[in-house]
Nucleic acid binder design. Sequence first.
DNA 1: AGTGCTAGCCTTTTT
DNA 2: GGCTAGCACT
Length: 662
Amino acid sequence: MPEVGDTGLIDFASVLNAEQYEAVTAPFGPALVLAGAGSGKTRTLTYRVAWLLSQGVKPSDILLLTFTNKAAREMLGRVEELTGVPARYFWGGTFHHIGQRFIRLFGTSVGIGKNFNIIDADDAESLLGQVIQDTDREFLKHKDNPKTRVVMSIVSYARNTCRPVGEVISDKYDYFEEVSGQIQQFAKLYQAKKLEQQVADYDDLLEYWLKILESDEQAAYYASQRFTQILVDEYQDTNMLQSRIIDRIGTHHRIMAVGDDAQCIYTWRGADFDNIMTFPDRHPGTRIFKIETNYRSTPEILRFANRVLDCQPDGIGFRKELKAFRAANIHPYFIQAIDTRQQAQFVAQRIDYLVENRGMNYRDIAVLYRAHYQAMDLQVELSKRRVPYQITSGVRFFEQAHIRDLVAQVRFAVNPEDSTAFQRFTCLLPKMGPKTALKILELAKDLSHKQKKSVLDVLNQDAILKKVPELGREEWPSLVQTLRDIASNAASEPKQPEAAVKIAVEGWYGDYIREAYENWMQRKDDLESLIGFAARFDSMAEMLAQLVLLNSETSDRSIERSEDCVRLTTVHQAKGLEFPAVFVIGLADGQFPIKRAVEEGNVEEERRLFYVAVTRAMDELYMVFPIISVQAGPMTRSEPSRFIREVPPTCFETVAMHQHRY
DNA sequence: AGTGCTAGCCTTTTT
DNA sequence: GGCTAGCACT
């Protein structure tokens, strides 16, 4: 156990402001910290951990829950810096990550073994698709019926809000009322299918966690005894599952929930800021702390942000007003460009200007947008001008086809019940489709049962080979050999995950990509870097879990290059970050707020999202509006975003690019 | 029956 | 620019 005594050296009163100090040193027991944007929320949580340690609380007593991996890493990193206690001494991470660890410990009581695999959204969708096909071949052919993706989102929403599927359909999707029964049936079968395959989707990680806490008394007792201090970040974005999990573990009420209802941007995923509003009811004696002094932004930016919130209808959330700490500076700009190309030109030009004439670094600048596709023109323009940028794009490192193909082989070698994984890589062979793959796997399981051998050991028998379409027969033995090597050879290595991935990269797939991809060299590099990633883990299960749960990570390769880069990201991904200069692009009505949200009546969430966007800016805020968009389908002419029009024009300065040449 | 190809559809946000 | 329905091919 490291020395905890050094926390005694921290003079909490002098490094925190009065509001923060109150919260940090709040007595044990329920506390709700309402921290506005830029008010030092992370700082408060970090110092709270340090303060708890100074009060004799052990790191292992603390459970720290966050929404993103980034937030978890950052927070524990800062704690380590502050107190010298290494991050690994805490149970800290995303809900999904902690849930995964918990289920590996106690999953047997709900029928989940230690070595279950986690499937990502794509795999989950194809599994559900299969279930639908198997149950009713005609269902997806019917035009009026929801597609697999929609069925998935309905079911997922129901699960995250702890409501029956039928109720969600009547409530939010009444136009699917006729097939409500069928959808419920699909949901049930999908659940059974996953259990059979010993795989869990993202929602399962929360659902099983709660189920265990509710049904397994020992596990529940362990959890609440073990974690005597619970800290939750971004509490406004918790959904019903998450808030119930917290309440279940925190029967002792020593919970500190930190959040800002004005920044709730995940209701589409089931987040409910009622959780924050009713926290005091569920935890009697809750102390409420408000932290409103903003250290991040100029008064002009804050004035703008506050006016954005003013436009919310009455009765939504707690009233709040960010109070400026910093000195006056320039106004936010509202730039009207002709089209998305001119918008991109403006941003690129201005970035050049900020770097060359104002001494900013590229890394001080971020461009935010509502949806990934809006960044396309900008990428072209930035490349043209050789402005270095890093994009947290729609296609993430671990989501690339070649990464997933490879991982599927490792997954299957670890858990031969995982037919989703099996399908993924076998379908790479010519003429091999999902149906054929499934048949082969069924036969293999059959043979393995009869011969009392493992599935991997029967895969290269003649009976199986006969089922493989002719064009793929030559490759088959090499593929099977690789799978067996992963399972057996890697198991005898001291660093099993690393060895397994290495074998997979050097085996059948290494040859396959040469023929499959033009740019196989680059993809090979990606795969090599995956070996390095695997080397960080001791257990296969943990490595495979992290591959799925870290899916928003960028590759090691691109992190190296990201030293001094402009950041291009969606507003969602920018939450919690700050930049001296921020560009918000695509501020046309229909793009932000996005058309669909307007049609579905979710404008308030879009407004909160816009609020999150503008409060990322420290010194300079540029909001850009393309009058004409050619991005999606036909050319459309649009009005400036209602979020801009609703704010008094005195809060910003308008520049029309078609009048003043830049 | 199952896989592969192409023309015409629509484009959100994340663990 | 990605995805699916529909059709052709084995």
